[in-house]
Structures are given as structure tokens and as C-alpha cells.
């Protein structure tokens, strides 16, 4: 049972994480827009632009279309935002141990990740617009498409850690504590790199960014899922978009680049905390730049069937190869073969 003191601590940290998640999420969106603009030879918006957009959306009229199912339509954005924030509670931020780290593992995170997407599907269907319905269908297809490679990544990493005799291989805490690179041998590192590639491709799909933004495709579906949303509801969705960006980047960081400054350099406790947080932010921005910003400005949008084939065939294969390499890596030393 959870003691009352512990509960209070969790609530407090949840509040802190919520604020942190929203602020950093929006900040990430701002950086993303700025970087994309610079790559396109533009000045781009100020980095705080997403905050301004959010403030504006909050004062705008919140329109619920006549033919929409109002309660689902209004509930979807709230749940989407809430669930994205909840995921954050399971993820290590810098050297801070996740507040709910003891109560859930990577599998749970994977399930939680589908909730914002499902909310968008529900909201889309509830909007009563044909564009939103097509968008919602596409979102479901996309979700099913990327779950498979994502599962391979998670399973492969956890399996390798388990093979190395690490306790609770599915908890993010232990994954972060035992980077895959330090556990695996050379073959495993190659496998890990392949998995990193898969993960980098899943990230834009999860965030519905180009080339996997078929569900929101502006030129095809006029905004797709979000076509009927406005005002406060749209603000919620854009907030959850920001938080999800942080979440996905944090997952990649936790699985593949979990090192902290404090574990490398000896620093006083307070300084170490700040340094780790800054370092974490740097890693998140780096991940976001390569797997979101750069990709989204350098590619054309895929068709929905191409999205499926990319994930199931290409990335699925790459993931499986990565998995096999990791298995071989674990099996070979055990069998006494020295590479």
C-alpha cells in the first residue's frame, strides 16, 4: 500500500512534472519550428511562439459543430493531454527517477502511448466531418503500423538486458541505469543502432509529423482529424502534441542515450541536478532535431498504404535484424565464442 506521505510526494511531483512537461513541450515545438524555418532559409517565429499561440487559442471561441457528438468531441482533447502527461511520470528526466517508475514499466508506457492517438481517433470520428473521419481511419491504420516495430524495439532491448541478468528489464529505470551499449558486445551494438534507427522512424509517426502525417495532411484533408477543432480544444491538442514530443524524445533518450553528466563527472548535488537536467534537455533537442525536424522538412508525405508498408516491411525487417543481432550477441558469448 502507498503511504500517505508517499502519495503526497507523488502528487507533488506529478504537478511539477505536468508544469515541466507543458513548458518544455511547448519550448520544444518552438525550437522545432525555428530550426525548420532556418533550414528553409527563413527567419521563423520566435521560440516562444507556441506559448503565444496557446494563449491565443485559449481566448478563442470554442466551436462544437452541430453534427458532432459533443461529449466525446470535448472529452478527447482533455484525455489526450492528461494521458500524455501521465506517461511523463514514468520517464526519467535527467537524473531524476520517474515519480511513478516503481508502478509501471515500458510495456505500460507503450500502452499509454496509444491513448492520445485513440483520443484523436475518437475526437475525429465525433467531429462529424468526412475529412476528420478519413483522418481518424488513417490514424488507426498508422497506429497499428508503427506499434509493431515499436514493440520489436522494446522487446529486443529488454530481452538483451534480461539476458545480461539485469533485474526488471522492462522498467525504464533499469534500462536507463544499464545502457544497452554497455551491456551488449559489438554485434549487439550494431543491432542497437538498427533499433535506434527504427525508433527514430517511429517517433515522427507517433507525433504525426511528415512523412507520416497522413491523418492531418493539410493538402489532402484540410487538417484531417483536427479539422473541426478550434479554441480551447485545439489548444489542448497542441499542448498534448508538445508533451508527446517531449515524451517520445525522452523515451529515445532513456533507452538509447541515458547517460548523465553526474555519472561521468563528480559535481555537488544541486549543481549535478541542474547539469543533468540541462544535459537531458540537450539530448532531447538533439533527438528531436534528427528524428522530427530534419525528417519533416526533408521528405514528402507518404500515402497511407506506403506508411503501412514502410513500417511493416522495411522497419519491421530492420527491427527484426536488430533483434536477431542482439540475440546472437547474447547467445554467442554464452556459447563460448569470442568475437
Amino acid at each position: 500500500m502507498i503511504g500517505s506521505w508517499e502519495l503526497a510526494l507523488i502528487v507533488l511531483s506529478a504537478v511539477i512534472v505536468t508544469v515541466y512537461g507543458i513548458v518544455v513541450g511547448l519550448f520544444l515545438l518552438g525550437i522545432d519550428r525555428k530550426l525548420a524555418a532556418h533550414m528553409q532559409a527563413r527567419v521563423g517565429p520566435p521560440i516562444r511562439q507556441p506559448f503565444i499561440d496557446l494563449r491565443k487559442l485559449l481566448i478563442k471561441e470554442n466551436v462544437v459543430p452541430d453534427n458532432a457528438i459533443a461529449w466525446i468531441f470535448n472529452l478527447a482533447p482533455v484525455v489526450a493531454l492528461a494521458s500524455s502527461i501521465v506517461i511523463l511520470l514514468y520517464l526519467p528526466i535527467g537524473s531524476i527517477y520517474p515519480p511513478l517508475g516503481a508502478y509501471g514499466d515500458l510495456i505500460l508506457v507503450m500502452y499509454l502511448l496509444t491513448i492520445p492517438a485513440l483520443c484523436m481517433v475518437a475526437g475525429g470520428f465525433a467531429s462529424g466531418s468526412p475529412y476528420a473521419s478519413i483522418g481518424a481511419q488513417r490514424e488507426m491504420v498508422t497506429m497499428i503500423a508503427y506499434e509493431f516495430p515499436l514493440a520489436i524495439v522494446v522487446v529486443a532491448v529488454a530481452w538483451r538486458l534480461a539476458a545480461a541478468g539485469i533485474q526488471d528489464p522492462f522498467t525504464l529505470g533499469s534500462i536507463a541505469a544499464h545502457p544497452i551499449w554497455s551491456v551488449a558486445g559489438p554485434l549487439g551494438i550494431v543491432g542497437g543502432l538498427l533499433l535506434l534507427l527504427v525508433m527514430a522512424a517511429v517517433t515522427p509517426a507517433e507525433l504525426s509529423r511528415i512523412p507520416f502525417d497522413t491523418q492531418e495532411a493539410e493538402t489532402e484533408l484540410a487538417g484531417g482529424l483536427l479539422v473541426e477543432y478550434s479554441g480551447k480544444n485545439l489548444a489542448m491538442f497542441s499542448l498534448s502534441q508538445g508533451v508527446k514530443t517531449l515524451v517520445m524524445a525522452a523515451i529515445v533518450v532513456a533507452i538509447f542515450i541515458p547517460w548523465n553528466i553526474s555519472s561521468l563527472v563528480l559535481l555537488p548535488e544541486g549543481v549535478a541536478l541542474v547539469a543533468d537536467l540541462l544535459f537531458f534537455l540537450g539530448k532531447v533537442i538533439l533527438v528531436m532535431f534528427f528524428s522530427v525536424s530534419l525528417v519533416r522538412v526533408a521528405m514528402a508525405r507518404f500515402q497511407i498504404n506506403q506508411v503501412v508498408s514502410v513500417f511493416w516491411i522495411y522497419l519491421g525487417l530492420i527491427g527484426l535484424v536488430g533483434l536477431l543481432l542482439l540475440m546472437a550477441d547474447a547467445a554467442l558469448p554464452a556459447a563460448g565464442v569470442i568475437i
Binding site: L35, A37, H38, M39, Q40, A41, R42, V43, G44, P46, L294, V297, A298, M299
Partner: peptide, 26 residues
Amino acid sequence: SLPMIPELLRQLMRKPATNLFPAKYL
């Protein structure tokens, strides 16, 4: 297969082509 990427990275290092009329930001 993605010839845009080098072009984009090069542009990231360059100055934007924007004419700052009437001011850079609002």
C-alpha cells in the same frame, strides 16, 4: 535518395534569405 538533407543542413548554417520588413520580430 534524399538529396534535400545536405541542402537543408547547409542552409541551417547560412543566413536566412528573409528581408526583414518592417522589423525582424513583432
